[in-house]
Amino acid sequence: MTATTQPKMVGPVLRGADAEMAEAIIEAIEIDNPDREVRVDDQRGYIRVSCPERCRLTRQTLAEVLDRDLDIAEVEPALSAFAGRMQMTDDEIVWYLERKD
């Protein structure tokens, strides 16, 4: 097994059936990851959103985009899967990978 030299992409795979939440999460991720490329691959049934190595989504930005208060747990019904590992706190979700090789 040879390691790839390309950066590994991580981030949420959103449920395509909930367009409003999916679009808001994509917009929030673009705001929350200003120094990273954000790729969006829309397969209709699911939407893969990814950044190289680390991808952050904050409650505050998502609330601003949606223009309403929300708990980070409300992301769950839109989150079908994710690439990388995930860490969730009250204020953010971070997808990441640690291994470098």
Binding site: R15, G16, A17, Q43, R44, G45, Y46, E76, P77, A78, L79, S80, A81
Partner: peptide, 21 residues
């Protein structure tokens, strides 16, 4: 689910993608 949305089977697509959450 991706194929279901292409086929137009909203029922199945909505169901299985929800399960996956």
């Amino acid at each position: 689910a991706a194929d279901a949305m292409e086929v137009g089977d909203l029922d199945f697509g909505a169901l299985i993608s929800s399960i996956q959450t």
